[in-house]
Design a protein around this nucleic acid. Structure first.
Lengths: 199, 199, 199, 199
DNA sequence: CATGAATGAGTGTTCATTCAT
DNA sequence: TATGAATGAACACTCATTCAT
């Protein structure tokens, strides 16, 4: 079966692609964008600098893809076990806790996403728009909550600002060892989130 | 030492210093830290690149000072008219609205501060610690609120995450024209902030 | 590691390395260390400035290598045809004349070595020590001469100062056209050298 | 007597001039020409960089003057107590030992002169020629020695190479702590020098 | 005379990207 | 596909010198 061979080849290539994405993630997180040169990324992924350009158009493209793939895996995690017909608060808590778990355990990925979302010049507009789509189920849930009179009738940006965005801050502080996000804190945090957006 | 009494000389011009800080603010905001080279900063401030080094030790020092001076002017604005014996909610609302006004009207400064606070590699630890001190009156107010049984007895990091940090998100969205922070929205936002932290 | 078996690539060209060393030699000799910038070296070697850093770690490394390689080729010349069992005076004369020939005909190399040996800040200590090793056969010969009661029993530094070091001066003067090192002069010079160190 | 005032002024100015020369001497000796910037020289002499240009035309001029003044003080020392009618060997020994004493005790000055004499690009031709004149009495002595059949009838460059130049090497080695120039060594060295040039 | 600010030209070095294999 | 060599353009920073006082 020569499909095996192609398979093998594709698999091997994908390993390099993933190694490159991982190296980029790690370097940008720890050294900052301005000290994550292509040469270091290549070295860390154990390939030649030139090889990067086989898998990605250029550095910006590499960053964009990294962003989009992490964003996708974030929302996959966020909506795990979520069913659109759950009661609003139940559904929200499920999503919220999923997101919190991701930020707590996929620290590197979360840190990278947070940087990208906070720095206007890192990701280009197109990729950012693309990344936003993943949130749709949450927006739908909120809309339903508003119809049902459970959630404040305000812009989803406001809801996001108070319900989701604070998690990024807590994650950052936890990473700097300024603050520990225990199970108790997590429950308090959810309470705050819910109180901020419920009617 | 007494030479400055007897000898004539040109003196450092504060105008140039400020022009340099402004140029840096503008470039970092619009191009990102990685595309704000000293040469562009100099050109924008209408001085020679070498002149920067008369006013600042190096690029990092320039960024640090810009951060600290903006942070100071932010907290000056934040605590304008604030008196430590105001009732807790009144005091909090005053500070919160002051901060919101700053973020709404000193957009550039706020954007820069937000970037610095969110990217670990931008400001060195020392300057960050220095910048944190400015928040003390708010922390004191929260402590008092907790004693009085008005504010949740949780870590100040949690309070900050839900009461203050969301403003950064709203500011960013407003800047991207995704969202308009009207007077009405502002009142809703404050409600959310307060509900998130009050008992 | 096995990648060089399976993958094609351009290989470092020794020609470029040598062109860079030659350019450096020439520029340092004619303009001095302080006016031999990497940009000029690159231009003279007909490569991009960045290419230098493929072949050498940095400017100091480039200078060190140039020193060591010239030092090695100097001592290769110095000990050409030398056999350790030659009579002391014969052996010394052979080495001395070899050195003189090198300094007379490999003028550029000799001039560079002389500069390096006379300016403490040019070569780092490690490379200087490395370069010293090449003289060992001469030191051994002197030691034998001392045992045989032919050569003064004084520090080898003294012997070197009077037997070898003067050649550097003569070479310099010859280069400045102040003095011509004819065959006759050479014989006189050797006589002086020998008289200075023999018992 | 207003000459007193002028005197005072001239004296004060001369102090700065000397401070600048000393600073230059020290920095060039210890850091090398390429790391002895005008700004450091000024700082070390406790004056403004601009002040240097009141006392010297430019950096090259500063180096040249330093060279010439040290060369002059070297030959003043060299010919101390020398009388042109001394017997040749006596006269030579006097001068030689004077020179040796200078190199042993005015280490900084001697080191600087040695650097200048060995590096073609440090001093401009004019100053070098000027500096050479100081040696005249020694050259005259040698000429007399040659007439009297005591000293080899060879070029004065050869005589200098073997009689004087080796001292520079010994001084350098002494400074690097590779070698100690004791009284005994000094006598051996003089013997070598004399044997190298006498008939 | 003396100053510290100011600077254009230059420094060694790095980088994202391309080339030749 | 994959490589390491190669590079032009840029980078942060420094320097000898001049300017304005």
């Amino acid at each position: 079966m020569n499909s095996n061979l192609t398979m093998a080849k594709r698999t091997k290539s994908n390993e390099k692609r993933i190694a490159l994405l991982n190296a980029t993630l790690h370097l940008v997180n720890n050294n900052g964008f301005h000290d994550a040169p292509m040469s270091k990324i290549a070295k860390m992924a154990d390939v030649s600098p030139a090889t990067i350009y086989i898998y990605f158009e250029n550095k910006q493209d590499l960053i964009n893809r990294l962003y989009l793939e992490n964003k996708a895996s974030f929302s996959e995690a966020a909506f795990k076990n979520y069913l659109p017909d759950l009661p609003v608060k139940k559904g929200f808590e499920l999503i919220w806790r999923n997101m919190a778990q991701f930020k707590l355990h996929q620290v590197e990925e979360a840190k990278f996403l947070s940087q990208c979302d906070n720095i206007s010049t890192m990701i280009d507009e197109e990729s950012r728009q693309e990344g936003l789509k993943n949130l749709q189920p949450l927006l739908d849930l909120w809309k339903r909550g508003q119809k049902e009179g459970i959630i404040k009738s305000v812009s989803p940006y406001l809801l996001y600002a108070y319900a989701i965005y604070p998690l990024a801050f807590l994650m950052t502080m936890q990473q700097r060892n300024d603050f520990e996000l225990t199970e108790g804190n997590l429950t308090e945090a959810f309470e705050s989130a819910w109180n901020a957006i419920r009617i």
